[in-house]
Design a protein around this nucleic acid. Structure first.
Lengths: 234, 234
DNA sequence: CGGCCAGTTGAGTGTGGTCAATCGTTGTGG
DNA sequence: CCACAACGATTGACCACACTCAACTGGCCG
């Protein structure tokens, strides 16, 4: 539901930002303002001047923080419809790296503030979006703080499955655009532990793996058991 | 800075909510609408109908989630000025328990939406507040996912210290209204590990402990070294 | 005084990390 | 076309950090 619930609110937001009132270059068409990125390219780095907000149009973006000694924590994976780089600080608080060739639509850094100030009818959608991001981050706190490695992996796969559901894609066939290292840094594990737990799920017949980038969920019930924590939504 | 940065934006919000336009009972004075809670009392539980939003006037509130098998993750500790229970869902996503006798000011669940819709001039402060909460949650992701037990404890103490600074209190004398169990559940540890690391910090002369509820930071530099992760803000 | 609860401390264990070797795929150049 | 390098992923052996279980301490209140 986490990322899924974001998707619920993203469609209207894209529309909001595309409105000429808040467009970065009012005279230019939305088509013209698209920016393309190649795999592993960074959109921005933590600490850079926050001059733009981005909407993910195509591809997947990995948002993360790093410590001074190089440890990395992935904050979220952003799929088409997501917003990137918003905040109330004048610097980016995170780094953003595209995982596969991606297309983003940049807006001025103040576009969201403008909406809030000038379009109260649309500000509500924006607030819902930010609150959904907050709820997702807080769900992830529970996963990082209190789940075992196998529970983390299962929860991650279920998250992707629900996201597929929201996008009307097959919830049992998951594409993994991110590496084992990205998954490890998202779940607070090492790549070895991620790999071992994928293997465990595979040998127990719960999932099937194809060329490391495709996961097929064979037994959804047992996957949910493995994730353990009831993620029932109210 | 996390919680501290929230405080930056909270003062105006209290004012916003206190405005008669959004007051729960427009004819009643703000004084009359205060609710008092005794220690360990719950303000609401995860899953309850989200009928009210609360502003913390006095005391400290612990916000947390639990798994079906009883594991608990503390999301945040809310000090005076914080808002509790906002969100876009119709149920509370977390439980809220007061740690010591507290005074809260309830508002209608729709008060924030009303502000966003009717008071665009004030909606900006509200947005900044929610974004600060989001930034705090994401900072905590790094702590939970990538820090060792001793780093977590040191980071936690520094967080309290910076919060004191923001409230013009002594940044080297910390009151701990929460139990070891609350701290453990906030940092993804056990009470034993929390206790051991407090002892370690004490015996190495970095902090001093008085009756388990007061921490005096004796060597701020070494405490920051122990926290390791540069938490420099931009 | 005695019970209760939070906190501390100790001993032993286990989950997940570290280090290292190997596999498989992809892409490049001879 | 094959050889080789480069990279991501897997697997194994070992280890350590934090958890578990348990005993004990200290403060508070009846």
């Amino acid at each position: 539901m986490r990322i899924a619930s974001q998707a619920n609110h993203l469609a209207p937001i894209s529309g909001i930002l595309a409105g000429d009132n808040v467009q970065n270059t009012p005279s230019a068409s939305a088509e013209r303002s698209l920016r393309t990125f190649s795999a592993k390219e960074h959109v921005f780095f933590e600490g850079d001047d926050r001059d733009s907000i981005y909407e993910v149009v195509d591809g997947v973006v990995c948002v993360y923080k790093v410590t001074s000694d190089g440890r990395r924590q992935v904050i979220s994976f952003c799929y088409p419809g997501s917003l990137l780089g918003f905040g109330h600080a004048d610097r980016y608080l995170y780094s953003a790296e595209v995982l596969s060739p991606a297309t983003l639509r940049p807006y001025s850094a103040g576009a969201l503030e403008k909406i809030v100030a000038e379009r109260p009818d649309l500000a509500h959608s924006l607030m819902s979006f930010v609150m959904a991001e907050l709820a997702a981050a807080r769900d992830q706190l529970l996963t990082l703080g209190r789940k075992s490695a196998s529970e983390k992996i299962a929860s991650f796969l279920l998250e992707l499955s629900r996201q597929n559901e929201e996008m009307s894609k097959d919830p049992e066939t998951l594409q993994l655009p991110m590496t084992r290292s990205d998954i490890a840094d998202y779940l607070g594990l090492t790549i070895e532990t991620v790999s071992r737990n994928f293997t465990k799920l595979k040998t127990s017949g719960i999932i099937d793996l194809h060329q490391n980038t495709t996961v097929v969920i064979c037994d959804m019930d047992r996957l949910e058991e493995t994730a353990s924590c009831d993620e029932e939504r109210f």
